[in-house]
Computed example of a mutant assay.
Amino acid sequence: MRVLFRSGAVPDAVPDEVALLGLRRVLVLCDDHGLDTARAVAASLGDACAGLHAGAVTHVPVEVADLAVEAAREARADGCVAVGGGSVTGLAKAVALRTGLPIVAVPTTYAGSEMTPVWGLTEGAVKRTGRDPKVLPRSVVYDPLLTLTMPPVGSATSGMNAIAHAVEALYAPDSTPIVALMAEEGVRALAAALPEIVADPSGHDARSRALYGAWLCGACLGATTMGLHHKLCHVLGGTFDLPHAETHAVVLPHVLAFNAPAVPEALAALSRALDVPDPVRELHELGERLGIPRSLANLGLTAADVDRAVDVALGAPYANPRPASADELRAVLHAAWAGERPYGG
């Protein structure tokens, strides 16, 4: 994987990366919100652009993936350029999973999906995930200027989603000292940058530091096994169609509070990164200061949905430093649903 990080990298860098990979006909993927940026990237590619497909949606429904695969085949594409956030990268991964086409990722949010070999598809209200090296992008072009179009709340939820990747990586069963260093630094960078972005969305320096943090957090996710936090968020997204980043932002402090007794080293690392004695409290209150949703109820989940979410979560195994019974999962999800403080009080 090649990673290029430079303000103003687009439009010249993407054609260069496509050429380095020997690609001659690439399909540019995006969602409806990122059409303008994707069109600019497509124009920069000239004759190497075989078409633009704007069909990406959250959680990558299989029928949406099918349409993208068909578009790639009709265009006789030999690669994909994903311009957007995690949904767009996820769609490119679905295409790569079926076709083997290489991906050039151009992130415009702090999702971090571009740094992982993890794919996800939703079918029949169930989100399945897996790992395959062929879905890992071959090149990633980070241009902080592309994140300037994210509104403050969108930036904040995207950044909290990235922080969640690093938090779980700190206590993953296959974490390493290098991953722990990257996770701590990623959390530190994002937690400092996000309030500045909310205060001044046009600030280039804060945007750059946030994207740097997201890069690190995404790499941590790609190197480790996902646990309870990601499992619950996949259930909430795939089964109930809750928004991806917002769901991660709400659930994060609640799962961390549950796991806290079993992960003292992870808590110590987060305390250093956040410069606070209680990282659970700080992550919850950081969300409040950033003005992002603090409850799953605000995202559309009903109280009756909590029991179904518990049942779905119990139906598939996941790694976690502390086992969770049905009642304990219900308590975690109910607290997140109600927007309770995970640290009491």
Rank of each mutant, 00 (worst) to 15 (best):
P102V: 13
P102C: 14
I103V: 15
I103P: 12
V104D: 13
V104M: 13
A105P: 07
A105F: 04
V106L: 05
P107E: 06
T109C: 00
T109D: 00
T109A: 00
A111E: 05
A111V: 03
G112N: 02
G112A: 02
G112Y: 01
S113T: 13
E114T: 10
E114C: 07
E114Q: 10
M115Y: 14
M115C: 13
T116I: 07
P117K: 09
P117R: 10
P117H: 11
W119R: 08
W119F: 14
G120V: 07
G120A: 15
L121H: 10
L121R: 12
T122C: 02
E123T: 12
E123W: 14
E123S: 13
G124D: 03
G124A: 06
G124F: 08
A125R: 15
V126T: 15
T129R: 14
T129D: 10
P133M: 11
K134S: 12
K134D: 12
K134G: 07
V135W: 11
V135G: 08
V135R: 10
V135T: 11
L136K: 09
L136A: 12
P137V: 03
P137K: 06
S139R: 15
S139T: 13
V140H: 06
V141K: 08
V141G: 08
Y142P: 02
D143F: 01
P144L: 01
L146Y: 01
L146G: 01
T147I: 04
T149K: 13
V153H: 11
G154H: 09
S155W: 00
S155A: 15
S155F: 01
A156N: 12
A156H: 09
A156C: 13
G159A: 09
M160T: 01
M160E: 03
M160N: 02
A162Q: 04
A164V: 03
H165D: 02
V167L: 03
A169L: 08
A169C: 09
L170M: 02
A172E: 08
A172S: 15
D174F: 07
I178K: 08
I178P: 02
A180D: 15
L181H: 11
L181T: 11
